[in-house]
Write a protein that binds this DNA or RNA. Structure first.
Lengths: 200, 200
DNA sequence: CGGTACATGTACCGTGTGGTACATGCAGCC
DNA sequence: GGCTGCATGTACCACACGGTACATGTACCG
């Protein structure tokens, strides 16, 4: 902080804001593939073609970089959600099936793994991950409750049902990632649909 | 490996097997409180009153120590499960409620957090955690399926129902740990019971 | 051309790590 | 007593890490 002054973090939109965003994007890719646990500035820098000095330059510290990585990867999840909401004219069951199929797309596996890794580290108290805990449930609950209500459920039970559905999806996702048993997990999910939406 | 020879790992039951077990037990306690992520031999040693040299002495390497810690903490989970199965003469719903209440006992929160942290790191590929993935689902599925079958469900759907129940519990546990909203999560669980066992 | 500001690289530093070498204590046994 | 074997501690090593100091480019502006 004495002589050079290193621009550091500067909101968004500066001429090097692009570079920052680009670096963070590459970092999220790398982290989705290799995890957040043993991340080092040197390793990351080498992987995305930049010296570790540059990462410090643009992000100030490893922690701040991690914060942005976590935030960005969260944003990707949210993008997925909003993409799913824009699907009108299908029955709730089919919408849910569609959602489930998208979530279990093998191409997303790395992203899901990262999600649960960050979740775990946040639960353990890793500072740069902790803030996500606030939104981890509520962000998803909100649209799910809305969907339930528009489907005719009364608001009180709609909340419970939404919360239950979210938990079940996450639990079965954990199962799928651990066992890889797509068929078995899908069958369990179908059972849930039967209980949830009634047979048929 | 050249001169001293350091007894290292020796199955079980040697006269220092006790010391090993005692160290691993203390280590699990420490890890349940502080997590597995930033564990260092020095920090752990200081916490449980032993020099980091001793940990190497008894376990050979940090990785092997971690393996035993993970295994032991898994064993604790399994102990909980078997304690729960020895509860005859109660209806399935009430047994499930009992199980749920025990799992959500705040005293167990640290252990649960550790569970999900290890789960997350195993998904990410941390070598000493990966082996748990095999049993993470099947170990619980087996008794749950048995319970379903003795309750009269046909084996095929019993498997699906058990898998679904396990996932739901884990998903709601994740929710609870993240939000701390005991009331809301309990309500969602009650909703699940209603769907699962029928109203009543 | 000169100069100012920024992007990037290289070299370095202090620290904490896992692991090793070696010394010391302490028990049992001849 | 003296020896042998194990438990424990102290001191050390090499290494990788995050972070810093400083130099070098490189573009734009006068």
């Amino acid at each position: 902080m004495t002589s050079t002054g290193d621009s550091g973090s500067e909101g968004a939109g500066g001429k090097d804001g692009d570079r920052r965003a680009q670096l963070v994007d590459a970092a999220v890719d790398h982290v989705a593939a290799h995890g957040i646990g043993d991340l080092s500035l040197r390793g990351l820098g080498a992987a995305i073609g930049v010296s570790h000095r540059m990462l410090i330059h643009y992000f100030g510290s490893k922690e701040q970089l991690l914060v942005e990585i976590v935030r960005a990867s969260e944003q990707r999840q949210r993008d997925l959600l909003s993409r799913l909401r824009a699907e009108p004219g299908v029955s709730p069951v089919d919408a849910a099936r569609l959602l489930w199929r998208q979530l279990t797309d093998p191409q997303l596996a790395n992203q899901e793994r990262l999600f649960f890794e960050i979740y775990g580290q946040a639960l353990r108290g890793r500072p740069e991950a902790v803030p996500v805990l606030d939104n981890l449930v509520s962000d998803w609950l909100e649209p799910l409750v809305a969907a339930e209500v528009t489907a005719g459920t009364d608001p009180a039970t709609a909340h419970n049902r939404a919360r239950l559905g979210l938990a079940t999806v996450r639990g079965l996702l954990l199962d799928l990632l651990a066992t890889g048993d797509r068929e078995g997990v899908d069958a369990a999910m179908e059972e849930f649909f039967r209980l949830y939406y009634g047979p048929g």
